[in-house]
C-alpha cells in the first residue's frame, strides 16, 4: 500500500516539476510561500538541501530592497530546488534498495 501511494506521489511530483513553467504567473510572495512549504516537506522527509532556505531568504531580501526581477528569479529557483528535493525524497524512498549489494 505504501509502495502504491509512493509511486502515485512520485508521479504527481514529476508532473509538478515539469509543469513548473506554470508558476510564472505567480507573485513572488506566492512563490515563496509555496517554496517554504515544499522545503518543510523535504525536511520532514529528511531530504532538505543546504541551498534552499538561503535562496528563500535572499529572495525576500531582494523583494524588500525593491529588486522585483531578482526576487522573482530567486524565488523561482528556490521553488524549483524545494520541489526537486521533495521529489528526491519520495523517489529514493522507493529506489535505494537497488544499490544494496547481494
Amino acid at each position: 500500500m505504501k509502495a502504491i501511494k509512493g509511486l502515485v506521489v512520485t508521479g504527481a511530483l514529476a508532473l509538478a516539476a515539469m509543469a513548473h513553467a506554470g508558476s510564472h504567473g505567480m507573485s513572488v510572495d506566492a512563490l515563496l510561500e509555496k517554496a517554504a512549504a515544499a522545503n518543510a516537506n523535504a525536511k520532514s522527509l529528511g531530504y532538505e538541501w543546504t541551498i534552499t532556505a538561503p535562496a528563500i531568504k535572499n529572495a525576500q531580501k531582494a523583494l524588500a530592497a525593491g529588486n522585483a526581477d531578482e526576487a522573482k528569479a530567486l524565488a523561482e529557483q528556490a521553488l524549483f530546488w524545494a520541489e526537486a528535493s521533495v521529489f528526491q525524497g519520495e523517489n529514493e524512498g522507493q529506489s535505494w534498495e537497488m544499490r544494496v549489494p547481494r
Binding site: Y47, W49, T50, I51, W81, A84, S85, Q88, E92, G93, W96, E97, R99, V100, P101
Partner: peptide
C-alpha cells in the same frame, strides 16, 4: 542506518555508497 547509507541526497544527488562503495 542502511537506508541512510544507500539513499541519494543533496542537490548533487549522491549516496554514501556512490562514493564509498561504487
Amino acid at each position: 542506518g542502511k537506508e541512510m547509507f544507500y539513499t541519494k541526497r543533496g542537490q548533487l544527488n549522491f549516496s554514501c555508497s556512490d562514493c564509498h562503495m561504487y
